[in-house]
Design a protein around this nucleic acid. Structure first.
Length: 834
RNA sequence: GCGGACGUGGCGGAAUUGGCAGACGCGCGGGACUUAGGAUCCCGUACUUCACGGUGUGGGGGUUCGAGUCCCCCCGUCCGCACCA
């Protein structure tokens, strides 16, 4: 087919100039309040939340823009579908990031942050996000952190905030305490320095009280499965039993291992509690192991062993988490003490070893070397007895365990366990626990990995924890009317290695009267974790302009829980878990009437560039401003969404953006050149309806890349052979494009004669009856191999289909005999089996 | 070690969930219009074969009329967690 290509007449309309279009419409939106949500009057509230960014000095990162754009498309789409969409924006600007950077460049964070925020806001506006700036929040604003402190007081009042001395992770480089979850493989998550242990008094939130609820509710949430799995693993529920091993009078019985004693001989105070998920193996527990930090060690250690035990504990204390957690060689020391195995009533030695962790369970274990690999290794190292208590199919109870613990015991049966012999492992767990329970030496227990949330930071750049210490009254909460406890603007905000916040060096701030008795008191100098700032910000947005309360009850009831939350999977565990926790506490306190903050959560993917992660050191960071300048925000947004599935991310390649820009150019031309004369083409209109359906289905599913592909495909059909475009063919396309490329859509919508925003013009409907034509292409297979296709009338019978296929010589030649079987799937294919 | 995701042209990626593998875009090749083209438009582009055809979704096996998709084994990549009792 030869397509005539007449010389086109010079266009009588302006060329597409993204810079001009975008400047004009951003101004228009600002002047007309297009992006403002009528929070009080909304009838169909739709809270489209994205994770707020840390406003770095480098400005908006493409990763940020990728995340925001995806949320913006989602929000704009739902607005067009008739919802009152609220898309707020804010800044998570406290914390170690800002502080370290401020120290590095020698500018005070109080100067630096407003500068960064202004730059961020400029870029976000350039990107064309549908943000209602009236509701913006900034966690470093006293008007915001006043309420962060108020949140602390709510937890304090309910007994959920408490102070305890604990071994904490200390980063010698950042000079601060890190939460366990901020330590990655024993190194500081921020700077990579090896973490040490220090003992400090810290403020904690009792999130572990909520473990079961946080776990159970996961089943009810519309969240990415990966995120829910990550939370489930983090909470780490395990069912088992707590068993009691009583320590005997070690002086009298020293060295008498293997001698049966009765539990009455035990000293009441010296009961070692262990947690185990394998109570069925208690008959095989041949020794106990305590964590080096275990509080009973001093009491039970014999004189002869004291020196060795002290030395071992000292060494463990000095060891940083890195070596302690990566060094897998089993080390340990005997305490000289013995305890009674509650099942066998035999004496078993009590050891101390660092492979037992104080922070999990009870800090003590019963070692079953026959069926636990770690215990097995320990037993081999120190020549301790190994007993088999489980047999699997074909194994003998008397057979020794061998070179490794027998761990895979799912189908096994208990042996060498007295009256329980022969029970299946699962049964034995219940039976043994019940038996020991009856004897007062055990009980079923559910244990969680989740530990309490340490919110203390010995730093400057955060909200001061609102507590005042008084020698007479103890720790007193700052009265609510005295909030905020303002962070003073001090010049020397650098942490030192004293382990105390720089705030302590400022007498005029530090000394304050006790709110209870009025006598001199001292302020708490710790500031709170940034995760606390972000654990409640979604509650603040709808009430951001209210100075008199943290969040308005009616407004909150109207807008929350959040309809849709989009953010990075790096916050899959901590931020989302903490937010859920705070929400539950507020529910329990009667402050709100829901307990899960985010009805729907989707994690976006990450953008890499030319196959590698973007980083300053690689020099492959994309500066959005350069792309806004060269291609326009619309093309840049659309390109980011086109490069891969939104939930997986994609590979940013500079050259790829031209295809998207060309698409927008062609859209621009098509609208400007379209005609009202005549009637739209039937085939094109059918394709249009299919495209409306596709884009309308894909967009809310975050399948942005395929939605864009569908629009491009339609564009190809629309302009195929340089045909003249009919207005009815292109007008709905402007609406489909609008969430992706909002500026050009507004401009073209106006060009088409509309006086109001395209975002208030609804979403085009498709006519399902127009999706299918009168005929369809039937793929014909012979023996499952495609041999051709025939055009069939819609609703054609199987007989008609076979007849049509056999009429094609190119198909019929493969049919060597009578069809044994015919598979006919109307609308799809015909398969002849001969 | 445990858990999760994944593996498709030269590249980014599609595939209605078992039904024409490679949509869409980049790149590349050819052509039109051009003084010119890094503009625009049209055509082509998995491999192989003159062709008929054959072969192809990391590798091997299986289920099925039919497998990128489901099952088993293996290899590889990425991401969590990591002595959690």
């Amino acid at each position: 087919m030869t397509v005539p290509s007449p010389t086109p007449p010079p266009p009588d309309y302006p060329a597409y100039d993204p810079a001009a279009v975008e400047r004009r419409w951003q101004g228009h939106w600002r002047d007309h309040g297009t992006n403002q949500t009528d929070l009080a009057g909304a009838t169909k509230p739709f809270y489209a939340l994205m994770m707020f960014p840390y406003p770095s000095a480098e400005g908006l990162h493409v990763g940020n823009l990728f995340a925001f754009t995806g949320n913006d498309i989602y929000g704009r789409f739902h607005r067009m579908r008739g919802h009152d969409v609220f898309e707020p924006f804010g800044y998570d600007a406290f914390g170690i990031h800002s502080e370290n950077f401020a120290i590095k460049v020698g500018v005070h964070p109080m100067e630096l942050i407003p500068r960064n925020v202004a730059n961020f806001q400029r870029q976000v506006e350039r990107a064309g996000l549908m943000v209602d700036w009236r509701q913006a929040v900034n966690t470093t604003d006293p008007a915001y952190y006043k309420w962060t402190q108020w949140v602390f007081l709510q937890l304090y009042r309910r007994g959920l905030a408490f102070k305890k001395e604990a071994a904490v992770n200390w980063c010698p480089s950042c000079k601060t305490v890190l939460a366990n979850e901020q330590v990655e493989h024993g190194h500081c998550e921020r700077c990579g320095t090896a973490v040490e242990l220090r003992q400090l008094a810290q403020w904690f939130f009792r999130i572990s009280d909520y473990a079961e609820r946080l776990l159970d509710n996961l089943a009810t949430l519309d969240w990415s499965e990966t995120t829910r799995t990550a939370q489930r693993n983090w909470i780490g529920r395990s069912e088992g039993a707590e068993l009691v091993f009583s320590v005997t009078d070690m002086q009298a019985d020293a060295g008498s291992a293997g001698v049966a004693v009765t539990t009455e001989m035990a000293i009441e105070e010296d009961r070692i509690r262990v947690f185990t998920t394998r109570p069925d193996t208690v008959f095989g527990a041949t020794f106990l192991v305590l964590a080096p930090e275990h509080s009973m060690i001093d009491a039970i250690t014999t004189l002869e062993q004291r020196a060795a035990v002290d030395a071992y504990r000292d060494q463990a204390r000095k060891q940083d988490l890195v070596t302690r957690k990566t060094e897998r060689e089993k080390t340990g020391v005997f305490t000289g003490a013995y305890a009674v195995n509650p099942a066998t009533e035999q004496l078993v030695p009590v050891w101390v070893a660092d492979y037992v962790l104080m922070e999990y369970g009870t800090g003590a274990i019963m070692a079953v070397p026959g069926h636990d690999q770690r215990d097995f290794e320990f037993a081999r190292t120190f020549d301790l007895p190994v007993v088999r208590v489980v047999v699997r199919e074909g194994e003998h109870a008397a057979a020794p365990v061998g070179d490794a613990a027998i761990v895979d015991t799912d189908g096994g049966r208990v042996c060498n366990s007295g009256r329980f012999d022969g029970l299946a492992v699962g049964e034995a767990k219940r039976e043994v626990t019940a038996w020991l329970h009856g004897r007062g030496t055990g009980r079923p227990v559910v244990n969680f990995r989740l530990h309490d949330w340490c919110i203390s930071r010995q730093r400057y750049w955060g909200p001061p924890i609102p507590i005042i210490y008084c020698d007479a009254c103890g720790a007193q909460p700052v009265p609510e009317q005295d909030l905020p406890v303002t962070l003073p603007n001090i010049a020397d905000f650098k942490p030192d290695d004293s382990g105390v916040s720089p705030l302590a060096r400022h007498a005029e701030w530090f000394h304050v009267p006790c709110p209870e008795c009025g006598r001199p008191g001292r302020r708490e100098t710790d500031v709170s974790d940034t995760f606390l700032d972000s654990a409640w910000y979604f509650l603040r947005y709808p009430s951001a302009t209210r100075a008199d309360l943290a969040f308005d009850k009616a407004m909150t009831a109207k807008w929350l829980p959040v309809t849709s939350y989009i953010g990075g999977n790096e916050h899959a565990v901590l931020h989302l878990l903490y937010s859920r926790f705070i929400t539950m506490v507020f529910k329990d306190a009667g402050l709100i009437d829901f307990e899960e903050p985010f009805t729907r959560f989707r994690a976006h993917g990450t953008i890499i560039r030319e196959g590698a992660k973007m980083s300053k050191s690689k020099g492959n960071v994309v500066n959005p401003d350069a792309y806004f300048d060269e291609w326009g925000a619309d093309a840049f947004r659309t390109y980011l969404m086109f490069l891969g599935p939104y939930e997986e991310g994609g590979d940013f390649r500079d050259r790829g953006i031209s295809g998207v820009k060309r698409f927008l150019d062609r859209l621009w031309s098509s609208v400007h050149e379209c005609t009202r004369d005549g009637t739209p083409d039937e085939g094109v209109m059918r394709k249009l309806h299919a495209t409306i359906k596709k884009v309308g289905d894909d967009t809310p599913a975050l399948a942005y890349n395929t939605a864009i592909a569908a629009m491009m495909e339609y564009m190809n059909a629309l302009r195929s052979g340089e045909r003249t475009v009919h207005r009815a063919e292109v007008e709905p396309l402007v609406q489909l494009v609008a969430p992706y490329a909002p500026h050009i859509a507004e401009a073209l919508w106006e060009r088409l004669g509309h006086g109001t925003s395209v975002f208030d013009g609804g979403w085009p409907a498709y006519d399902a009856s127009r999706l299918a034509g009168d005929t369809w292409e039937c793929v014909v297979q012979v023996q499952g191999k495609t041999r051709g296709k025939v055009t069939l009338a819609t609703g054609a019978s199987q007989e008609a289909a076979v007849a049509a296929a056999m009429a094609e010589p190119s198909i019929a030649k493969f049919v060597t005999g009578p069809a044994k079987k015919v598979i006919y799937v109307p609308g799809r294919l015909l398969n002849l089996v001969v």
